[in-house]
Design a protein around this nucleic acid. Structure first.
Lengths: 263, 263
DNA sequence: CCATAATATTTGGCATTATCAAATACGGTA
DNA sequence: TACCGTATTTGATAATGCCAAATATTATGG
């Protein structure tokens, strides 16, 4: 992951500042310089440079992350093939099911949530926006497991070695053997279940999105509370709808019927 | 804007790299070092540091911006009061009108698009995702003008001095006098129109969102193609629906019925 | 109104290091 | 195998990031 070589130390200091700001929301210069372990003067010069580039903003005496991240983030998201090809079909999926639908991709062995669409059944604060704020473990959810199922066993092993299989609920897969069996079943079925493995009471059905030459571009899922998702929807209706969306998206990927590199 | 003082030069170099990468999408080391005007060695060390922090990723011999921006961006977005308070009402607005609805805020005299909700009428690629990738001029649209209308004349003057009033279509406001008149009318009405001022064929109705003590937190709007938005909807239905959403949001802001700093 | 304190900001100087230039390694091609 | 065009690493040094201390700012209380 981190191939030996030099690093720019000043940049690493800046990253520490950004990480601490993300952690704490907003901080005074004194708090910040204490946490990051640099003098106030140093922290100040860094903050000024970051501010000038919109990655930090200052409200009174408090510093926090700036709106520049929003535009950079949008750029990265918009250049994800699976998002470009998937946004319309997945939006349709959310409308049809009335539930939450997500598009995700994988980076560095973790799950990156790209977009979430809300169907009409979904109510206020049923889902945490903060899922976007950190990459999640792949073995937690339907999108993650869909993507794991597309990887070589060696790659899966390496990911598990690196991150382990921490539990999120009492149904989370925490055992390597169980995980490999599950991935096998996902490959057979073509889609993945998540039955309260990440959040109590939440079920989801997901499927990977493959490019023409078989690369896994990401995954999609539909998710909702168990109260609204009975076994019929969970095992019949949703898998069919998800498969349908997948076909649409993969057709989009093939025809490239969208602009990936528009400016 | 840039209060005198020192800067971290290495950080500025990193920002140049990020900006060039955003501009060009993806680049080889050679291209990049040429554009940024540093040696390949220097660029390489920077890229390694950026990559280690997920702000850059490497695909073969090409570098591009990384998924770390997505998580940082989500963090910033989720901490915007207007987004937390507005997301549910504006989603409802999109469902009711069937059109596109947006939540935006202002930073540094520009418009920052936070979120866009799609009603069922909206079709594939009707709107550019790239609006998220850069801050837009405030005088272009309904959200921007709503926010301008809440500022002091001095502040508006300073913004116009700084950015000018560039045209986007032949209906864009390009004259300071006209702008001030328009802002006055917006204040009287309580909402702003955008009749093809930003994009040919697109009309929008927007309104600011104010905090309890009168600060402007941001703005919302509903937008769609002229073909679907006749004068009745434009001047009657939409203003009412937008006003209704505004009331809901401002009530949310007051009661703080959401978690801004959840983790 | 001044004194006090706690903050942010600026400045001087030195040790660290970001940078350049050049050498090396790597990957594809003929 | 030799070649060429990449990326990557390395050595040396001029530049600068950093610390420590000085100054400015802002808020608070008597």
């Amino acid at each position: 992951m981190s191939p030996g070589g030099r690093r720019i130390k000043a940049l690493e200091t800046a990253f520490e500042i950004l990480a601490v700001l993300k952690e704490n929301g907003q901080m005074s210069l004194a708090e910040l310089s204490e946490q990051v372990d640099v003098t106030k003067g140093t922290a100040h010069t860094h903050l000024m440079t970051l501010q000038q580039n919109d990655l930090v903003e200052q409200a009174g005496e408090r510093y926090r992350l700036g709106t520049g991240f929003i535009t950079y983030g949008a750029h990265v998201k918009n250049r994800q093939l699976v998002f470009q090809a998937g946004k319309d079909p997945v939006r349709q999926l959310a409308l049809k099911t009335g539930e939450i639908c997500e598009i995700a991709t994988e980076y560095d062995g973790k799950c990156v949530l790209l977009h979430r669409f809300y169907g009409e059944n979904t109510i206020n604060r049923e889902y945490q926006q903060t899922s976007f704020e950190q990459h999640r473990y792949l073995h937690y959810g339907a999108t993650g497991k869909s993507m794991l199922a597309q990887m070589s066993p060696e790659r899966v092993d390496r990911i598990v070695d690196r991150y382990g299989l921490p539990a999120q609920t009492n149904k989370t897969i925490t055992d390597r053997r169980t995980l490999f069996d599950e991935l096998e079943r996902i490959r057979e079925r073509g889609y993945a279940y998540n039955d309260e493995e990440e959040i109590h009471g939440i079920r989801a059905v997901g499927t990977p999105i493959l490019s023409t030459d078989g690369d896994c571009l990401g995954a999609i899922c539909v998710a909702g509370p168990g109260g609204r998702i009975d076994d019929e929807r969970f095992t019949e209706a949703f898998p069919n709808l998800v498969a349908e969306a997948r076909s649409l998206i993969e057709a989009n990927v093939q025809t490239n019927d969208f602009d990936v590199f528009i400016n």
